[in-house]
Design a protein around this nucleic acid. Structure first.
Lengths: 123, 123
DNA sequence: ACACCAATTTAGGTTAACCTAATTAGGAAT
DNA sequence: ATTCCTAATTAGGTTAACCTAAATTGGTGT
């Protein structure tokens, strides 16, 4: 079954917090996504049930292989879009913000075209 | 108050149906957006309360100035994005589909940059 | 005038994602 | 051992956008 945009956000943020901080807790996610802890608990349970992360009550959170794969895929999309927006001279903070929204919704085909385009122009 | 993405979809579709067909009814919108009539009735009431369209029970639907302005703005965004994707050699149907999602979420700044870029490259 | 039909509305769900307020758990400090 | 604090959970809403099933309406044909 297809993941919701929001679920993808959670996975990406968990991946980034892990990378930057070494461990991930409910609070960190809530802070990063600007939501309240109960919302995080709820989503984390859902993702856990889907086999995308491991979570035991009041413990640290870690992504499964599957979950990490998805998170990295989203980041990949993100980076391609940011580069594209940079080429178009969008100011960096705006580019980051917009990329975070666009990353969830473009098709694979479009993503590939963007990557090619960036590669070509970038020489 | 800010419009939801979905509300923008309704406005754009109403605008297009009006242009192509001359009049707009609940059924037409339901068909175009692939939702059931009760959902349309509900949203149309909401948009009517917001002053974006005129609707009396079982009558035709028409946009107000304000509503039409928004609808045209969305279409404007759409076209800019489609052109951009075309430059990147995204197949037309894919471009249209992705543009419909992207049009709702990019910032004005990014939109302006896209327009400039398209203008520049297009020469 | 009546009966029928297609379009619409009403009534009453569902789901995803959020929230607040109140409770519980576990670790640190006295 | 008790207290305290922070983090997390539970319980119980809310909102937006959808749905199905049933009732209503307005126009058409006889």
């Amino acid at each position: 079954m297809r993941l919701s945009r929001r679920a993808e956000d959670y996975l990406r943020i968990i991946y980034e917090i892990k990378r930057d901080k070494g461990y991930v807790r409910i609070k960190d996610i809530a802070l990063a996504l600007n939501v309240k802890p109960p919302s995080v608990t709820e989503m984390v349970h859902k993702l856990s049930k889907m086999g995308l992360l491991i979570y035991e009550k009041r413990a640290y959170i870690s992504l499964t292989e599957e979950g990490e794969k998805i998170a990295r895929n989203i980041k990949d999309r993100h980076e391609a879009i940011v580069k594209l927006l940079e080429i178009m001279e969008v100011p960096p903070e705006v580019a980051r913000k917009d990329a975070h929204r666009i990353e969830h919704i473009i098709s694979i085909e479009t993503l590939e075209c963007i990557k090619n385009f960036v590669r070509k122009v970038r020489t």
